[in-house]
Design a protein around this nucleic acid. Structure first.
Lengths: 175, 175
DNA sequence: ATTCATTATCTTGATATCAAGATAAATCGT
DNA sequence: ACGATTTATCTTGATATCAAGATAATGAAT
């Protein structure tokens, strides 16, 4: 026997509706996984708003940050980039094309593998991504304000448990 | 002082890279929010795979389930549907068009509001969504197998805390 | 050496999505 | 009643994405 919860979110309503309509099904998984999906959608909107101030789009940011955090010389292959961003190879080719046209990255042949290419952040790209990232962190911190430090850590740990099987089984699954 | 964690995921590596490159920034928010985004992407892939067996696409499922859990007569307005699925009105119009063409829903004018339309699940739509939903739950249960029942409940609760501000502030924000 | 499988990237064609605006009906205040 | 605002849906045009396949270089096994 548990207390009634003080506040409800959309998922509580959604789950209640399912229990009414399909009492034969165990819809408990939705309590976690629907929240993950819905929260992710909301986060994506926040990100877009944060980046708009810096003239960066969400997809650009994903690529630029992957290069930025790889450290000097801020250079990775398209393959490494698509694994970092969870997009397909066709998408990544397209993204690199556009980032290069905008002068934020440059492409050059890989000297060690003639099939390959290396993508490198330009100084303009570096500046752009650093400003946008600082702003994003500021906004994300606000979104987490409802949780205490210990709660955040617990949450991060539980999410990690769910994520490990994906990251372990397919660190290089891409087309 | 905490124990070193036994297993790492991609986000652990990502955060470590940032701490190396930008020790001046507090990147802790990523521990939670990057995991939410990445997990959501993986979940989307799983969903697609589950639905493929039932000849349903992910976006179709979202609309059909919203109708299904609304109960008899399985009928909602496009406005209610887009609020339930977090998409724009243009997207929803397009989705309804295609679902109607596939015979899974029917559209009829709202007798009480001449601006409006009502979208109703057909028997074929009902059958389709029920089969796909049962399968989805089965697969989602497996994804959560790494957590105990109490852990799932804690996780759901923490996610709810993050979600409430979004669901409260904008229960009807749509274009 | 030669074949086979793998890896790396790019190309193509189809599609779902979004933002912004158009249309039309309902509602509210005066 | 009347005009202004809000609500509900649809249309349009641009764009990012994906799946599948093409091209080409590498590596491993015989």
């Amino acid at each position: 026997m548990t207390f009634p919860r003080p506040v409800e979110d959309e998922v509580d309503r959604l789950v209640a509706a399912w229990r009414q309509e399909r009492p034969d099904l165990d819809v408990a998984p939705l309590e976690v996984l629907s929240r993950v999906s819905r929260l992710s959608r909301h986060l994506e909107r926040e990100r877009r708003a944060a980046f708009a101030d810096h003239g960066v789009e969400s997809w650009e940011f994903d690529v630029l940050t992957a290069l930025r955090r790889s450290g000097e010389p801020y250079e990775l292959s398209p393959g490494a980039l698509l694994r970092a961003t969870l997009v397909t190879s066709g998408t990544m080719t397209n993204r690199i094309d556009r980032l290069a046209a905008a002068g934020l990255v440059v492409r050059r042949p890989d000297p060690e593998d003639r099939r390959g290419v290396l993508v490198r952040l330009t100084p303009a790209g570096l500046e752009r991504v650093d400003a946008a990232f600082a702003d994003l962190l500021r906004r994300e911190r606000e979104l987490l304000a409802g949780l205490g430090p210990d709660e955040r850590q617990v949450l991060a740990g539980l999410l990690r448990t769910l994520l490990v099987p994906f990251d372990a089984s397919a660190p290089g699954t891409a087309h």
